[in-house]
Every structure is written in C-alpha cells, then in structure tokens.
Amino acid sequence: YSFVPFSPVAMLDPTILTLGGIVLGIAIIERILERWGVIDLVDQFEKVMRFILPVTFYGALFYFFATFMF
C-alpha cells in the first residue's frame, strides 16, 4: 500500500499532450524541409526551436507539478 498515490495515467494530461504534439510536429516538419533541401528555412526553424523547446519543457513540467495533487 502506498501513502502517495501515483498513477502513470496522470501524465496523459491533454495540455501536456497537446504541447508535446505541437513540438513533435514542428520537429517532423523541420526534418521534411531538410530532406527537400530548403536549408534556409530549416535554419530559421532551428533558431526558433532552440528557444521554444526548453521553454515548453519547463512550462509543461511546472504545469504538471502545479496541477498534480500529491
């Protein structure tokens, strides 16, 4: 018996899944553009993603712990 109930289903929060899906979609688009040879646009995506990925990760982590009931 655990005094701190924890379920892995709690990580299936729609907000976190949406943010993860958006970031994953942008990464897939970046790889497709790289395969097509549009390197200038890929460089722009890389500059934006270098900022968005950490902000999204820490924001989702903060949101998860702020809404998770211990």
Rank of each mutant, 00 (worst) to 15 (best):
L61E: 09
I26R: 03
I39K: 13
A27W: 07
Q44E: 14
P14S: 08
V9E: 11
F51E: 06
A60R: 00
L24P: 03
K47F: 15
F57Q: 10
E46D: 09
F45A: 02
Y63Q: 02
R35P: 02
T56E: 06
I26H: 02
I22V: 06
G25V: 00
W36I: 04
F64W: 03
E46F: 04
F6T: 08
Y58W: 15
E30C: 10
L19H: 03
V42K: 00
S7G: 13
S2N: 11
L24E: 06
Y58K: 13
K47E: 12
L53K: 14
T67M: 09
G20Y: 01
P5Y: 07
D40N: 09
A27S: 15
F51K: 13
W36C: 09
P54Y: 06
S2Q: 15
I16V: 07
I28D: 01
S7I: 05
I32Q: 11
L41H: 02
I16K: 00
D40R: 12
V55Y: 05
V9I: 11
Y1V: 02
V42Q: 00
F70C: 12
F64S: 04
M49P: 00
P8T: 10
V42A: 03
E34P: 01
E30V: 06
A10C: 12
F57Y: 14
G59V: 01
G25S: 04
A60D: 07
Q44F: 15
P54K: 15
F62A: 15
I29Q: 09
F70G: 10
I32K: 13
I16M: 05
Y63M: 01
Q44P: 05
P5Q: 09
I22K: 08
Y58C: 12
I26T: 05
R50I: 06
V38L: 14
F62D: 12
D13R: 02
